Amino acid sequence: MEFGDNDEPLETRLVQVRGEVQGIGYREACVRRAHALGVTGWVRNRMDGSVDAMVQGSSEQLAEMCAWLSEGMSAALVDRLEVTEVLPPFARFEHFERLPTL
Score class of each variant (00 low, 15 high):
Met1Leu: 12
Glu2Ile: 10
Phe3Lys: 15
Gly4Asn: 15
Asp5Tyr: 09
Asn6Asp: 14
Asp7Lys: 13
Asp7Ala: 12
Glu8Ala: 10
Glu8Ser: 10
Pro9Asp: 05
Pro9Phe: 02
Leu10Met: 11
Glu11Met: 12
Thr12Ile: 06
Thr12Gln: 15
Arg13Ser: 01
Leu14Lys: 10
Leu14Pro: 01
Val15Ala: 05
Gln16Leu: 08
Gln16Met: 08
Val17Asp: 00
Arg18Trp: 01
Arg18Met: 03
Arg18Asn: 04
Gly19Cys: 02
Glu20Leu: 09
Val21Ile: 01
Gln22Ala: 06
Gln22Glu: 05
Gly23Lys: 10
Gly23Glu: 06
Gly23Arg: 07
Gly25Ala: 09
Gly25Arg: 07
Tyr26Cys: 01
Tyr26Val: 01
Glu28His: 12
Ala29Met: 08
Cys30Met: 11
Cys30Ser: 13
Val31Trp: 00
Ala34Gly: 03
Ala34Ile: 01
His35Trp: 04
Leu37Asp: 03
Gly38Gln: 07
Gly38Ile: 06
Gly38Ser: 07
Gly38Thr: 05
Val39Asn: 07
Val39Leu: 09
Thr40Gln: 09
Gly41Gln: 04
Gly41Ser: 08
Trp42Cys: 11
Val43Ile: 06
Arg44Ile: 06
Arg44Phe: 04
Asn45Cys: 08
Met47Arg: 15
Asp48Ile: 06
Gly49Val: 00
Ser50Lys: 06
Ser50Thr: 13
Val51Leu: 06
Ala53Gly: 05
Ala53Arg: 02
Met54Ala: 09
Gln56Asn: 07
Gln56Val: 04
Ser58Leu: 08
Ser58Phe: 08
Ser59Asn: 11
Ser59Gly: 12
Gln61Thr: 01
Leu62Val: 07
Glu64Ser: 15
Glu64Thr: 10
Met65Asn: 03
Met65Thr: 04
Cys66Ile: 12
Ala67Gln: 14
Ala67Glu: 14
Ala67Lys: 14
Ala67Met: 11
Trp68Gly: 04
Trp68His: 09
Leu69Phe: 02
Ser70Phe: 03
Glu71Tyr: 11
Glu71Asp: 14
Glu71His: 14
Glu71Pro: 02
Gly72Lys: 03
Gly72Trp: 01
Gly72Ala: 10
Met73Asp: 13
Ser74Met: 12
Ser74Cys: 09
Ser74Phe: 10
Ala75Ser: 15
Ala76Val: 04
Ala76Gln: 00
Leu77Asn: 13
Leu77Lys: 15
Val78Phe: 01
Arg80Lys: 13
Arg80Pro: 03
Arg80Gly: 03
Thr84Tyr: 08
Thr84Pro: 05
Val86Trp: 07
Pro88Ser: 13
Ala91His: 14
Arg92Gly: 05
Arg92Ala: 12
Arg92Phe: 02
His95Asp: 14
His95Thr: 13
Phe96His: 02
Arg98Tyr: 03
Leu99Cys: 09
Pro100Leu: 12
Leu102Met: 11
Leu102Pro: 01
